[in-house]
Amino acid sequence: MRFLTDAHTRTDHMRCQTCGGETSPALNECSICRTPLGQPPVAPGVPTYPVGGFGRAVVAAVAVTAVLDILVALYPAVGAVLARRAAEAQDTDVLLGAVLLEVPFLLLFGAAYLTSAVLMIIWTWRARKNLEAFPGALPQLTSGWAIAGWLVPLANFVVPVRVVAGIARDSLWRSRTPVLVGVWWAAWLVFSLGERLAYLADSRAYERLPENPFNDIGYQAYVGYYQDALVRNLIPLAACLIAAATLIVLVRRVTAAQQARIALGAPAWPAPPGWPGASAPYGWPAAPVPLGPLGVTGPSPQVVGPGSAVSPQAAGPAGGTIGA
């Protein structure tokens, strides 16, 4: 009776291999991480993909893109100053210099933006593929949408956030989509649409400027153009900073969670010669015992046959040995 009680107690207090939380035999899965009872953190035979390096690359690229966007968005303040100096000196070359000075910032921002997009697509695909090796994960979209979702027109307004939401839920053990995902995507949409609207408005305003200003009115038109452009850039800039900050936090959290789970699933056996043997996790087969020459593991203990008695070995005669 005591044995049955102890066994029942051990079953009630079995711990999940993924999160370490206590599980109940009344449930088929862990209430914390949703890993099915008795399943390892990572399914054997299913490949996983490192996300640490790409996660750090995404964080760095997004941070650089945000800094460059600040320079591009606030550059009209510099253009307004140069336009006033051009009016004071009545020098159109200063206006041309203001236009040319903005070009390097735009090129650097475009390169950083493209780099961030490529790295984000790769990281998303790898993180989504890892879900296939996590018992209990329930992704709603296939891994192919982790790439196609960013590239297909119109679908790129909905699919990427659904893929990232699934990755965040299954990696961070959430039953609902984390708030960070919604904030990131809303800010991203505001930035994307706001930047395009601001660009179209700047283009129309620039076309109305006099090509060769000969008086103060012409130069003042350039000053007003840069001032209006600065105001139009404020909303997309704020949205860009919010999107960048939330994405950086989200990528870091998901990357750390997936790396920790993959590390839990990495077998720590068999050990190198001379090392103490490591026990296999619950539910996994034990490590094989290395065999000696001809498959012999070592001397076997003496087996006592039925009805036989084993007596202690008698000492031999003095000065001799058995069989000598």
Rank of each mutant, 00 (worst) to 15 (best):
P41D: 10
L4R: 10
S308V: 15
T35L: 06
R34Q: 06
E195G: 10
T124I: 02
P317I: 05
A112F: 01
I242E: 03
T255E: 05
E195R: 10
T255D: 07
V118S: 06
P160R: 01
Y225E: 08
Q140W: 05
A256I: 02
T246P: 06
F109N: 13
W145D: 09
L200G: 12
Q39H: 13
G79K: 04
R84Y: 02
P236A: 12
L172S: 08
P306V: 14
P25S: 05
P285V: 11
P317D: 13
P213M: 05
A309C: 06
T142G: 15
G218Q: 01
A263Q: 12
F191I: 10
V223N: 04
L264C: 09
M120L: 11
A243I: 00
R176Y: 03
P153W: 07
W185F: 11
L151K: 02
S279T: 15
P178C: 02
L234F: 08
V159W: 04
Q140V: 13
V64G: 12
L100H: 15
Q17N: 10
P317V: 10
F157S: 00
S175M: 02
P236W: 01
G149K: 06
S175L: 06
A260D: 14
A278C: 06
V59R: 11
F214C: 08
E132F: 08
I262N: 09
I121P: 05
R174Q: 15
K129S: 13
A83W: 04
H8P: 00
V249E: 09
P139D: 05
T255C: 06
D69S: 15
L138I: 13
V51L: 08
A314Y: 05
W150S: 07
A201C: 00
A221Y: 06
G305H: 09
A229F: 02
A43G: 09
Y49E: 12
P210N: 03
C30H: 04
R176N: 09
Q227L: 04
E102I: 00
W188C: 07
T11H: 09
I235G: 13
A133K: 04
A280F: 02
E195H: 07
N233R: 06
G45K: 00
E211V: 14
T23Y: 03
